[in-house]
């Protein structure tokens, strides 16, 4: 299975994950500072900023786009409960 590296900049921790893993699955286990609310893409609490590898995450769904817009997300913000890791990337809490 293809692997990818995701780095959580706030805790300076990099994890090697199988491609397709959702960020929420990793960040909670290592205690990164991304905070979760509904965990289903509706509340916007887990908004994070992608500092590198923006294109290495799955495309946001229409619903995620809507929540990001409502929460005044900047260009490279995503919801950690929705985004899946496809290639190397670096993230931090928004």
């Amino acid at each position: 299975m293809p692997k990818a590296k995701i780095t959580f900049e706030d805790v300076e921790q990099t994890v090697n994950v199988p491609a397709g893993t959702r960020i929420i699955e990793v960040s909670e286990k290592i205690g990164a500072g991304i905070i979760y609310g509904c965990r289903e893409g509706d509340c916007g609490t887990c908004m994070m900023h992608v500092t590198e590898g923006w294109n290495n995450l799955t495309e946001p769904s229409v619903l995620e786009e809507k929540i990001l817009r409502e929460n005044m997300a900047s260009r490279h913000d995503r919801l950690a409960c929705q985004a899946q890791i496809l290639g190397n990337c670096k993230v931090k809490p928004a």
Partner: peptide, 19 residues
């Protein structure tokens, strides 16, 4: 250690090793 920056944790850990 975690408080002072997690110096002793490995730079890259494997997903399978996470609890």
């Amino acid at each position: 250690d975690a408080l002072s920056g997690g110096k002793n944790e490995p730079a890259v850990i494997d997903f399978a090793d996470l609890a």
